[in-house]
């Protein structure tokens, strides 16, 4: 793999994007909630709380944009380096995201009509592609093993009502 793939292809500021996101979501939520009866504090309609929360979110978004540029990061999650403030986006990340999320969506689309066995098999292969350098044979073996395991545990042992095979 060439070294170039390790260089971030884009750098975004966490507080800028988060602040912007909060403002957009808040504005959207407030816009939708304008159609809900508002009521008063003591006789609230269904629109009272959503509108209030939406405006608070907008305010927080603005505050994050203005004041939250140097907040320390949390130490949570598998990646625990709180130091790096700019969000770095790597080209390869999009590949990972595409295959993981794409695999899930495909699974959702195919489960009902193609059955658990086929959908699981494809799901495993697709998500495995998220990592570069996945070799064909181990991937196929892994997919077969997981498919078998899932069918036995969920359908045979637990009796979940999911079709195993395609329905034609």
């Amino acid at each position: 793999m060439e070294a170039g793939s390790r260089r971030p292809s884009a750098t975004l500021h966490a507080s800028a994007t988060l602040g912007f996101f909060c403002i957009m979501v808040g504005a959207g939520a407030a816009w939708i909630a304008r159609g809900y009866p508002y009521g008063t504090l003591t006789a609230m309609g269904p629109g009272f709380v959503p509108t209030a929360v939406a405006f608070l979110l907008i305010a927080l978004g603005v505050a994050i944009l203005l004041f939250d540029r140097s907040a320390p990061g949390p130490s949570q999650g598998p990646e625990a380096n709180g130091a790096a403030q700019p969000v770095q986006v790597f080209a390869g990340v999009l590949r990972g995201m595409f295959f993981v999320l794409g695999g899930i969506i495909f699974f959702g689309l195919s489960l009902r009509s193609f059955g658990l066995a086929f959908s699981t098999f494809v799901l495993v292969i697709v998500v495995s592609l998220a990592q570069r350098g996945a070799r064909p044979l181990p991937t196929l073996l892994l997919a077969t093993a997981i498919t078998l395991g899932a069918c036995v545990v969920f359908v045979l042992l637990l009796g979940l009502q999911i079709p195993l095979f395609p329905r034609f």
Binding site: L156, L157, L158, G159, L160, Q161
Partner: peptide, 18 residues
């Protein structure tokens, strides 16, 4: 929720389907 096959349970961890 879950769906279940009323007959597909045998008592025990194996719970084999009949």
């Amino acid at each position: 929720i879950y769906a279940l096959s009323r007959r597909s349970f045998m008592i025990g961890a194996a719970g084999a389907a009949i």
